[in-house]
Simulated scan of single mutants.
Amino acid sequence: MQLFAAFPDEARLWIFAASRSLSPTETQTLLASLQPFLASWQAHGLPVHGQAAMLHQRFLLLAGYVPNGEISGCSIDAATRAVNAAGQALGITWLSPLVIFYRDAEGTVQHATRAQFRRLIAAGQVTAATPVFDLSLTTVGELRRGAFEKPAGQSWHARVFSLTPQP
């Protein structure tokens, strides 16, 4: 199943990362609580086609598209407020996009500060082959092209953390 199948590649994308894994019930409640906002979301008086999805019980993805329009400023702020309110109602803390998300040796999604991530690399617990997540994606097309999760050696993490790039 492709996420946001009805959206063009240029549709905007925002990724919110939870501090912990959400249960299936929490995920369902979170997505349901965002529906009223998504149904009424507007940008410069135009309706925004919006949709939310959850990946790996940690990442809330919010996509938005305005045919012949643009999502900016106040409409982005409104989306962020809606996500924050929905999370707060469920006791979910959204982490800074500066936090690094990766899969540990068992495949579980973990997070670390940049300093902690450097220590994990030094200890050999994170390598260029370790799957990492890129929370900086801004379009649905990037998501479709597989830019969200990839080996650290094939992402910006290789450059920032001096990991040997993977072919």
Score class of each variant (00 low, 15 high):
Met1Tyr: 12
Met1Pro: 13
Leu3His: 08
Phe4Tyr: 01
Phe4Gln: 00
Phe7Lys: 00
Glu10Trp: 10
Arg12His: 14
Arg12Phe: 11
Leu13Tyr: 02
Trp14Val: 09
Ile15Ser: 06
Ile15Met: 07
Phe16His: 10
Phe16Met: 07
Ala18Met: 08
Ala18Phe: 07
Ser19Pro: 08
Arg20Asn: 04
Ser21Thr: 12
Pro24Lys: 09
Pro24Asn: 10
Pro24Trp: 05
Thr27Arg: 10
Ala32Arg: 11
Ala32Tyr: 08
Ser33Met: 05
Leu34Lys: 01
Pro36His: 01
Leu38Ala: 01
Leu38Asp: 00
Ser40Tyr: 04
Trp41Asn: 00
His44Arg: 08
Gly45Ala: 09
Leu46Gly: 10
His49Ala: 14
His49Met: 13
His49Lys: 12
Ala53Ser: 08
Met54Lys: 03
Met54Gln: 07
Leu55Met: 13
Gln57Arg: 15
Gln57Ala: 14
Phe59Val: 03
Phe59Leu: 04
Phe59Lys: 00
Phe59Thr: 00
Ala63Phe: 01
Ala63Asp: 02
Gly64Trp: 00
Gly64Ile: 03
Tyr65Trp: 15
Tyr65His: 14
Asn68Ala: 13
Glu70His: 13
Ser72Asp: 13
Ser72Arg: 12
Gly73Val: 07
Cys74Met: 13
Ser75Arg: 02
Ile76Leu: 15
Ile76Ser: 15
Asp77Thr: 09
Asp77Ala: 10
Ala78Ser: 15
Ala79Asp: 07
Thr80Phe: 15
Thr80His: 15
Thr80Glu: 15
Ala82Cys: 06
Ala82Tyr: 00
Ala82Asn: 06
Val83Asp: 00
Ala86Ser: 09
Gln88Lys: 13
Gln88Pro: 09
Ala89Ser: 13
Leu90Phe: 06
Gly91Cys: 06
Ile92Arg: 00
Ile92Tyr: 01
Trp94Asp: 05
Trp94Glu: 04
Trp94Ser: 06
Ser96His: 08
Ile100Lys: 09
Ile100Asn: 11
Ile100Tyr: 05
Phe101Trp: 05
Arg103Cys: 08
Glu106Leu: 14
Glu106Asn: 14
Glu106Gln: 15
Thr108His: 14
His111Arg: 08
His111Gly: 07
His111Trp: 06
Arg114Tyr: 09
Ala115Leu: 11
Phe117Ile: 00
Arg119Asn: 15
Leu120Phe: 03
Leu120Met: 05
Ala122His: 12
Ala123Val: 09
Gly124Met: 09
Gly124Gln: 08
Gly124Cys: 10
Gln125Phe: 10
Val126Gln: 02
Ala129Trp: 13
Ala129Phe: 14
Thr130Gly: 01
Thr130Ala: 06
Val132Asp: 05
Val132Asn: 07
Val132Gln: 04
Asp134Glu: 14
Thr138Cys: 12
Leu143Val: 04
Leu143Ala: 02
Arg144Asn: 07
Glu149Asp: 09
Pro151Met: 04
Ala152Val: 08
Ala152Cys: 09
Gln154Gly: 05
Ser155Asn: 05
Trp156Lys: 12
His157Thr: 13
Arg159Asp: 12
Arg159Phe: 13
Ser162Asn: 15
Ser162Lys: 14
Thr164Trp: 10
Gln166Asp: 12
Pro167Gln: 12
Pro167Ile: 10
